[in-house]
Computed example of a mutant assay.
Amino acid sequence: MTLLSFVDDGTILAQSKQLDDNNVGLRKAYKIIYLLFVAFVLVLEHDKTELFHFSRRRDAYNPSLDLGYAPHTGATPLKPKTYWRGLSPKQRRLLYRSCVVPIATYGYRLWYFDGARNKGAMNQLKWMQRKAALWITGAFRTSPLRLIPVHLMLKKLATRAVYCVATLSDTHPLRSMMGEGLLKRAAPHARSAALMTPAMRGKVKSTVMEVDERVHTLTESFKPFAPEARPAAIIYKGHRELERTHYVSGRVTAPDAELNAISCAVRLAVKQANCQHIMVFTDSMGSAHRAVDPGVHSGQAFSLSVCRALQEWFEVDDLRCITFVYVPSALRWDIHDTLRSQAAHSVLDSWSSTFQDPTYRGSEFLELQRAAATAIVPQWGTLAFNLRTQYY
């Protein structure tokens, strides 16, 4: 019996000379895994668990099995083909950064944290990026590509992930795994860091423990449910504001929060006297469509309240109508922008300093120089493709 885990998907393989023996083994293996999940107070999603069984007899036919990308890292070898030849180096780099890197780093927090033994996974990612760099430049030696080293890239992503915990609500399920300082109003999980003894905390190495230890380096504080950030509904009649209200959406997604705001606005608008035409201005047309869709979907309760209110409002006069107007957000401010910038600049400074060490740079690096006879150093903001070397 073999168990393969792909971050959030599981596969159980069984091999024997008799297929009936495989069925017995698969049942036992599945029961063991299910009981382990129950012991750790976890939920086993049956629709994400796959069972395969093969015969070990030489005369038996076994179909080919495609297991996708490699487990743990998700890295796939980058194999240039003939249809890549029409792409420029800039387009190749964009393709690598947009498609390959997200797949290769998918689920990296499961194996990348303080104290983790991840040398093998890191070597695979370094090998993958070196192949990508050669493919992008079309050279046989690496050169500055604005490709940040793998270990610094993961460090940047991990720092951002740690800081994101500070933006969670006080009752977010993830807080139930944290220590006392981050628990807030969430109920502690049975395996929570808050319930561990000091001796146990020193032995356990995981992403949760890393977050619990490093999030305190963040000096900025956040209020996920500040009064100003709650879904708001403002009612206007002409240019005169009639009513303004705020509601707490709770633990919902951003589209559901938008749907809640639309629901609040509509229910307030239909109560206005002599109201014949309602115009809803929103920057989320997807939520606007769902607002009048009574079918089963996330936030259905908000949609049903809108439909009930509009049904009673329309029955009074057939000439009444409602219009949804799409207004794109002119100002886009993200609370993570400053934190993301700090994390990126930190690893870039580390990259620039370590690159000056010949032992780190290695002997296979292709030295490029500008017209002023100055060496080209790794940069994040400019593309160093000016000199392209080919060997035939």
Rank of each mutant, 00 (worst) to 15 (best):
A161L: 13
A161Y: 08
V162E: 06
Y163N: 09
Y163Q: 12
Y163S: 07
V165E: 11
V165I: 15
A166W: 04
A166N: 14
S169E: 14
T171I: 15
H172E: 10
P173Y: 09
P173F: 11
S176D: 08
M177T: 05
G179R: 03
G179L: 08
E180W: 14
E180Y: 07
G181T: 14
L182I: 09
K184N: 10
A186L: 13
A187I: 09
P188A: 03
P188Y: 01
P188H: 00
H189S: 06
A190P: 02
R191C: 12
R191V: 06
R191N: 12
S192R: 00
S192P: 03
A193K: 07
A193G: 06
A193F: 15
A194L: 02
A194W: 04
L195A: 11
L195E: 01
M196R: 14
M196Y: 15
M196H: 13
R201G: 10
R201P: 03
K203W: 01
K203L: 14
V204D: 04
K205Q: 15
S206A: 10
S206Q: 09
M209Q: 08
M209N: 06
V211A: 04
V211Y: 02
V211Q: 02
D212P: 02
R214F: 08
R214A: 11
H216W: 10
T217W: 10
L218V: 10
T219Y: 05
E220I: 07
E220D: 05
S221G: 03
F222G: 02
F222P: 00
K223G: 02
A226M: 04
P227T: 06
P227W: 04
A229D: 12
R230E: 03
R230S: 00
P231R: 00
A232I: 01
A233E: 00
I234Y: 00
I234Q: 04
I234K: 01
I235S: 03
Y236K: 07
Y236T: 00
H239S: 15
R240Q: 15
L242G: 10
E243Q: 13
E243M: 08
E243F: 13
R244N: 08
T245C: 09
T245I: 11
H246S: 12
Y247F: 07
Y247Q: 12
V248G: 06
V248H: 12
S249H: 07
S249M: 03
V252I: 06
A254H: 11
P255K: 04
D256N: 04
E258S: 02
E258L: 01
A261P: 02
S263D: 07
C264H: 02
A265K: 03
V266N: 09
V266H: 09
V266M: 12
R267E: 12
L268I: 05
A269D: 10
K271I: 05
Q272V: 15
C275E: 04
C275N: 13
Q276K: 15
Q276Y: 05
H277M: 08
I278M: 03
M279D: 02
M279C: 08
F281Y: 12
T282Y: 01
